[in-house]
Design a protein around this nucleic acid. Structure first.
Lengths: 340, 340
DNA sequence: AATCAGAATGTAAACAGTTACATCAAGCAT
DNA sequence: ATGCTTGATGTAACTGTTTACATTCTGATT
């Protein structure tokens, strides 16, 4: 390491001004061929490396964006994060990740430290839409896009999937297989609008097909393998258990499968299961998981494009994008036993 | 957004010098109680936010570290990344992630751009140990720790697990269950020392128990679900197929399970499978995956502590840390059919 | 009364780039 | 010859902090 050489060293060696060196770096076409070559040569000579931090300081643009997610260890967020990183990278931006662990206090803290670090915008999968974090960023007109969200209120940009439609189609798929008694392992409504919309789609589908809604069949829990297992056990121990379960995400679904199996049920004959997310592993377990695919990587990409446009003020109006989900029919869903 | 207020604004309002404001921020005990209060008040008045970028520029410390991994979408890397982020966060550092996709060219490019961004050190899970990237960082004495690695040569710090021992124990477990014909789905040796060591443990274990090594039973492929599936199919189609397979990571193992099942084999009776990594999902599939647990989160934490110490020059000598793996016996391994 | 230590605060340069503006020479039209 | 345009380059101020050093003040010690 030791002392780094600067633009001034280069300038001295090439016998030009620092402005010229800067021009060679940022807009080489503005410099005559001869000087340009000299400058390049000088750079090599003193092992010059560009200091992007100093550039950021001088131009007051950090070329970084802040990303707040529940946790990078959930594959669905890892997937969208990858999309974000890929687009950011392409535009010369980098991403600083903060893990909130679904805790609003953390979210608040992370936004504060990332702002000190001068991120130019935020990409947030929020834990609490009504919290001050979002509204105050909004109020300052700080570039912001919500991911995995579908809010349309008050000038927030958001990109997400149509959770209502997804929940509806998952349920409809089960109905079309002949199920009438359909349970749901839902996420906690308090977390976000996602959980609620998926449930609402489920409920509406039941109504459409004249199936009465039984609150006993709905369990709210968090998005984890363990609570999927517990939830399934609870539902299948009812006097009149469901023949199929729609799970609010794939982790819950995998947990539910395991729970059902531990009770000695055979899948999918004794119980059909649909998930939500479309994580890769779903197609590698037995029976393969039928699920609603969320284009997570795509969502990350699109969201970042929106944010970057907003940062460059190419767009001023908030943007709402709903990506299409897709029903992936695999082996975890079949006709209910009775109607076999 | 608009114009941000600076330390000078605060100084003007509080009628002190900028040095004093700086002191209030960085070492409040050096400032009299009265002035301190005034300064805090002034900060509130003009909605001052600290500019960490400017601090980084002035002190020539970016308070950031670079992390290069194959891809954040692999849960094992997500897990260690989380460990890294948690420790970094604790020490006021942030992490910039680069995904190499197991491509050396990418790795090279990423190191270059992160250096421009003035990261203070690197955490790398490298694709090619012999590449110039590592050696030139080393040569410059640039802070660097290798993750998931166990090299001991030439002054590199590394933290990893004992892949040899892990491979040995996985194999020994199968032998102890009565298996004599044991296949291996190994990673590509060219990628890193990990793949090689796991295989070497496998081979040594066979030797110890007087089982001859059959190269037909070893397939090298990449660390993916799909190649696990293909590999298993290939092995089980041999004239004299194995009764057990040791897989170089859990993804390969899951893929192998799926492949075996597609061939109509029943698990674990027709085929025992051991994985390597200990990803969470392994305990939620049927049969539960027997595996060698790598403490990925822990590895991230420890590695970051080493790196941060190195950055602060608390340690000068390279450090080599080997964390213990752990055999998790679950249901995917049993006695071979013949000896039932 | 003179000296000194120590605490509190101020002064101003430094960090490594960018950029508005100025300068200069060459080429060209008048 | 004069003025005008254009392209290439230089000058120097600016970005928001930190920090070595200087200054001022207070109170204790001689």
């Amino acid at each position: 390491m030791g002392i780094m050489s600067t633009i001034r060293d280069v300038a001295r060696i090439a016998e030009v001004s620092t402005a010229t060196v800067s021009r060679v770096i940022n807009s080489p076409e503005k410099v005559s061929r001869e000087t340009r070559e000299n400058v390049y040569q000088a750079m090599r000579l003193c092992h010059y490396t560009y200091n992007a931090l100093a550039r950021g300081f001088a131009t007051r643009r950090s070329h970084s964006i802040g990303l707040i997610i529940p946790t990078i260890t959930n594959p669905i967020f890892a997937e969208s994060t990858r999309g974000i990183q890929d687009v950011a990278d392409e535009y010369g931006y980098h991403v600083i990740i903060g893990n909130s662990d679904y805790q609003y206090k953390q979210e608040e803290r992370l936004v504060a430290v990332l702002r000190e670090r001068q991120v130019e915008g935020f990409m947030i999968t929020t834990t609490d839409l009504r919290g001050k974090v979002i509204s105050s960023l909004l109020h300052e007109r700080f570039p912001l896009v919500l991911l995995y969200s579908t809010v349309r209120k008050g000038g927030i940009s958001a990109v997400g999937v149509d959770n209502f439609k997804g929940g509806f189609r998952a349920t409809e798929h089960l109905v079309s297989r002949g199920h009438r008694r359909i349970g749901m392992l839902a996420g906690k409504f308090s977390f976000s609008d996602r959980s609620y919309h998926r449930w609402y789609g489920y409920r509406n589908c039941l109504k459409k097909y004249g199936i009465s809604y039984d609150p006993q069949l709905v369990v709210q829990s968090d998005y984890s393998l363990a609570s999927g297992r517990n939830g399934a056990v609870r539902l299948m121990n009812l006097n009149n258990p469901p023949t199929a379960i729609f799970c609010a995400n794939d982790y819950i679904a995998l947990g539910a499968m395991e729970g059902a199996r531990q009770m000695g049920l055979s899948l999918p004959d004794d119980l059909s299961i649909v998930g939500f997310d479309g994580i890769k592993i779903g197609s590698f377990i037995t029976p393969n998981l039928t699920t609603i695919l969320q284009p997570a990587y795509e969502m990350g990409k699109v969201g970042t494009q929106v944010l970057l446009n907003q940062i460059q003020q190419k767009i001023k109006k908030p943007v709402h994008i709903l990506l299409e989900t897709q029903l992936i029919e695999r082996q975890s869903t079949t006709r209910p036993k009775a109607s076999h």
